[in-house]
Design a protein around this nucleic acid. Structure first.
Length: 614
DNA sequence: CCCCCCCC
């Protein structure tokens, strides 16, 4: 039976955020946001109860808004806090915000439990952390409404500060050591205090050297660093004197409380963190080292499959993980422009679908030990389009060997069990034609006049097969190997091939199917030959030909119908050619594959970001 | 307010 975790709210505010407490939602309020119409970023503030106390500065992560939208999470719901953070706004004044990064709804519809009172915020900074709930105080859900214990969870003798809410209401808290008043209407919603000052507790995962800059706007110095906490990451930069002040304070790997700073939209072109904003440290910024133990991850990776690098734009920045298949020796080269000498080392990195060459530079190259096929995780490598696709690490790239993260364990297991004997597509040896199959819509075939160059254009589009010319799916072709020329039935049991200039005793069925495919932007007739037609129909040309010989209309209809109306990825070769003095667009399908929706959506997001960035 | 990151 679910129980509320008595005392959990105080423990959270004291920093014991690892606890997965069961709490009741006594109130929720949509917070006014400046971008009022921005439905994505709307924020709810919850009043949570642990059965004994309530705390109403609990911000619900916006990714959890759907729980409210679908009424799974509502007033009096009982929830389990899966992940939260305590944001200290002003420790002395007892201003805290509990950020709910993840929760699960234990009981959606419930009655109010107990008679909790507003949590008096004591000197939370005392280190005497209760680490587990007190079972004797647990309140059974849902069939008891026993009043909360008379004992306040706050330690005897502690300095009790007024609650944040009381401060907002303009009252002095005084000694509220025993605030447990069963008559108090503690569910009365308090005003939220304005969160115009924030504090994050974050780990520095990367830091640049101090660099000087000079351009038309002036000159100066700067450094930047990447910060991450349990919920995300952000890049921060300091200029001028702020640079002098903060550079020596921040050390890679350490955790800091950072208060105040300017936020601006991130320039995705240069910012490899997964955040729409970036931070500038300014005169008001306060940075304080955090010496407590935290669960803040070392580095936040946003891995993409290696195969997806083929679809991404050159020069874009990605995170990848893979097995080091092989490693080159150190090479020394001289830069063309700079005339400086660089050292480099190439690594062949593979996952379950593809492999490619990754270049490390300088110290990273020299110190790299790739023996015994380690897992390599790279954050912030640049895609280069030399020799197909390769990756190049930057000074800012984070390269981790055998990191202790889930994805690394998964790929290790895969490689040791089966991957070691697999071969996968090599993105770094492909010809231009093979790799240049960007995602496009059918409408773009016309709008971009694809196929009008000397070389054919190759695109990949997500489309549905609308119609198939079912009478001309297969034809009788020359049985000779490497010849698929249509044969003429001599009527005497032999079949003439003009190409081989010979008559054969038999023929073979070959595919040449015509299909109309469509997406939201248009439709296009395409031709499919053996591999692609076989992928579309799911049967061999011989099987199809047999049905045709048997005049088995019903079977043919069944096969054709099944091939229609499915969404697939069509890789197309597009070329205008002359046929009987007439120009016509030939669109040949060169590959059909299933839509990988996760990758497809990621690609769409990349496209959308590029549209909004420009 | 930077935004360069190398070579075949």
């Amino acid at each position: 039976m679910a129980r509320l975790s008595t005392g959990a709210l105080l423990r959270y505010l004291r920093g014991n955020v690892e606890e997965k407490a069961t709490l009741q939602v006594l109130g929720m309020k949509l917070i006014d946001n400046k971008a009022g119409e921005d439905n994505q970023n709307r924020r709810y503030r919850l009043m949570l109860s642990d059965g004994k106390n309530t705390f109403s500065s609990c911000m619900l992560g916006s990714q959890l808004n759907s729980l409210i939208d679908n009424s799974e999470l509502k007033e009096n719901s009982i929830v389990r806090i899966e992940k939260c953070m305590c944001n200290v706004i002003d420790r002395q004044a007892g201003k805290f915000v509990l950020m709910i990064a993840d929760l699960s709804v234990v009981v959606s519809t419930a009655d109010k439990i107990g008679d909790p009172v507003v949590l008096p915020l004591t000197n939370i900074s005392n280190n005497n952390l209760p680490t587990k709930s007190e079972p004797q105080d647990d309140i059974v859900v849902p069939n008891t409404t026993a009043p909360a214990s008379k004992t306040n969870v706050i330690r005897q003798g502690s300095n009790v500060l007024p609650t944040a809410d009381r401060l907002v209401n303009g009252k002095k808290g005084g000694n509220t050591n025993n605030t447990n008043n069963n008559n108090s209407n503690s569910t009365k919603p308090e005003r939220i205090f304005t969160i115009d000052i924030w504090t994050i507790r974050a780990r520095v995962t990367n830091k640049t050297a101090v660099r000087t800059w000079e351009n038309a706007r002036g000159k100066g110095q700067l450094f930047s660093c990447d910060l991450c906490d349990e919920t995300g990451e952000i890049r921060a930069t300091a200029f001028g004197s702020d640079c002098d002040k903060f550079f020596p304070m921040l050390e890679i790997g350490n955790v800091y409380y950072i208060t105040k700073g300017t936020l601006k939209t991130a320039n995705k072109q240069y910012n490899q963190t997964n955040n729409d904003y970036e931070m500038t440290f300014n005169h008001d910024t306060l940075i304080e080292a955090c010496t407590e133990q935290t669960q803040i991850p070392e580095t936040k990776f946003n891995f993409i499959p290696i195969s997806e690098i083929a679809q991404r734009d050159p020069n874009s920045i990605v995170d990848v993980i893979g097995i080091v298949k092989s490693v080159s020796d150190i090479q020394r080269i001289v830069g063309k422009q700079s005339q400086k000498e660089f050292t480099k080392r190439d690594i062949l990195l593979m996952d379950d679908k593809a492999k490619l060459s990754v270049t490390l530079w300088g110290q990273q190259a020299e110190e790299f030990d790739g023996s015994s096929n380690p897992v390599l995780a790279i954050k912030g490598a640049k895609i280069s389009d030399f020799n197909g696709r390769t990756l190049s690490c930057l000074q800012s790239s984070i390269v981790k060997i055998n990191p202790n993260i889930q994805e690394a364990h998964e790929i290790r297991t895969w490689y040791d069990n089966e991957g070691f004997e697999m071969d996968v597509e090599d993105l770094s040896t492909k010809t231009d034609r093979e790799r240049m199959t960007p995602f496009k819509t059918i409408g773009q075939i016309t709008s971009e006049q694809l196929g009008s160059n000397d070389k054919p254009d190759y695109i990949t589009c997500k489309a549905i097969c609308l119609m198939i010319k079912k009478d001309s799916v297969v034809y009788m072709s020359c049985p000779a190997e490497n010849c698929s020329k249509k044969v003429i039935d001599n009527g005497d049991g032999t079949f003439r091939c003009e190409k081989c200039n010979a008559s054969h005793e038999n023929f073979k069925w070959s595919y040449m199917a015509n299909a109309e495919i469509s997406d939201s932007t248009g439709s296009q007739w395409i031709t499919l030959f053996r591999n692609e037609a076989e992928a579309l129909f799911g049967i061999t040309p011989e099987e199809f030909g047999q049905m045709k010989s048997n005049n088995d209309e019903e079977a043919i209809n069944a096969v054709v119908t099944k091939a229609q109306n499915n969404e697939k990825m069509f890789k197309l070769r597009i070329k205008i050619d002359n046929y009987n003095d007439e120009q016509r667009l030939r669109v040949t399908c060169v590959n059909i594959s299933d839509v990988e929706y996760v990758n497809n959506v990621k690609q769409l997001l990349v496209d959308i970001n590029q549209l909004t960035a420009s």
